[in-house]
Design a protein around this nucleic acid. Structure first.
Length: 297
DNA sequence: TCACGTCAAGCAGAT
DNA sequence: ATCTGCTTGACGTGA
């Protein structure tokens, strides 16, 4: 079991998300920005290792406009050494890596332009992990996509489109249950047709489910990950009290998290904490997991 | 220097 | 019809 947080470190004054506006795009601007982002990524990973945080989600904003037609710069060649160095650090410390393209990535969209942009975005994500020379346990997670008024049809479209994706994307892509459209059961149905691993989002499941218990979910999701994929990835968050349904808490509740650890036995999986205060919650959760003897160093 | 409107991109559900 | 949330944070213009 590894525990981590997504994209942003709030302790270090260093961001991997530095960007600029499309209208101020230039190759030199992209070089400067990416150099900064790569430097910060390595710093954050180093901080994480020193704090036993061995799961990290790399930001989709690492390379600004990488999948946009405006970008003709071969950033993956130019910065090959930097990427490789980060990849070596990741492998040396056995860090689990995920990426999560944003809500615009919809491979089941009825719109051809949306599909094309989505495929470009997935290729961009895969390229980052490839140029770091990471193995197949580094994953790219997306939601199934839109419903477009006919969920069954949209799931079939997903399966058809999935099968046509480039190999570099296929070996890393996983789907995640979302909080209103596609449940874990839907994702498992898609898995049956495609063998795509299913990432289990605990919080989304609490908002959108078919009545399965936590153990049932972990059991069925675990089975979708082959040895080459690494162990099951999960996303974990909690409902903020007195806030709109689906709002994430600001910080982790350790009593709730310990309860979750107890209830999830004996399954082993990695946990991404989608919680606002990032590494602070991760550190607290790791202490809890250690006391629960779920943490293997 | 700072506030704040805006930023490549889509969809669903709420207001 | 318009706004909000989704990993929101960061840019950059205008004062």
């Amino acid at each position: 079991m590894k525990i981590g947080y997504p994209c942003i470190n709030q302790t270090l004054d260093c961001s991997t998300n530095k960007t600029f506006r499309l209208r101020s795009y230039s190759e030199s601007r992209l070089k400067d920005t990416l150099q900064n982002n790569l430097n910060c990524l390595l710093k954050i990973l180093d901080y994480n290792v020193k704090n036993n945080i061995l799961f990290f989600r790399i930001s989709s904003d690492l390379v600004p406009f990488a999948s946009h037609p405006v970008c003709r710069f071969q950033w993956y060649d130019y910065f090959k050494k930097d990427f490789k160095k980060i990849g070596q650090f990741i492998k040396k410390h056995n860090i689990r890596i995920s990426m999560h393209p944003d809500q615009f990535t919809l491979i089941n969209s009825p719109r051809k332009d949306v599909l094309e942009r989505s495929v470009s975005e997935l290729i961009y994500h895969a390229r980052i992990l490839d140029v770091m020379e990471l193995d197949e346990t580094a994953k790219i997670q997306i939601h199934v996509g839109g419903v477009y008024g006919d969920k069954q049809r949209s799931m079939i479209v997903f399966v058809e489109r999935y099968k046509k994706l480039p190999k570099a994307v296929l070996r890393r892509l996983v789907i995640e249950n979302d909080d209103r459209s596609y449940t874990l059961a839907d994702c498992l149905r898609i898995h049956k047709k495609t063998n795509i691993p299913v990432l289990f989002d605990v919080f989304h499941h609490s908002l959108n489910n078919s009545g399965e218990s936590l153990k049932e979910c972990l059991k069925s999701a675990t089975k979708t990950w082959k040895k080459k994929d690494g162990i099951l990835m999960t996303d974990y968050s909690l409902q903020k009290k007195n806030a709109k349904k689906g709002t994430h808490v600001y910080t982790i509740s350790i009593s709730d998290f310990k309860k979750f650890l107890r209830e999830s036995k004996p399954y082993d999986f990695d946990i991404m904490l989608e919680i606002k205060d990032k590494e602070k919650s991760a550190k607290k959760a790791i202490l809890a997991a250690k006391s629960d003897k779920r943490w293997k160093c």
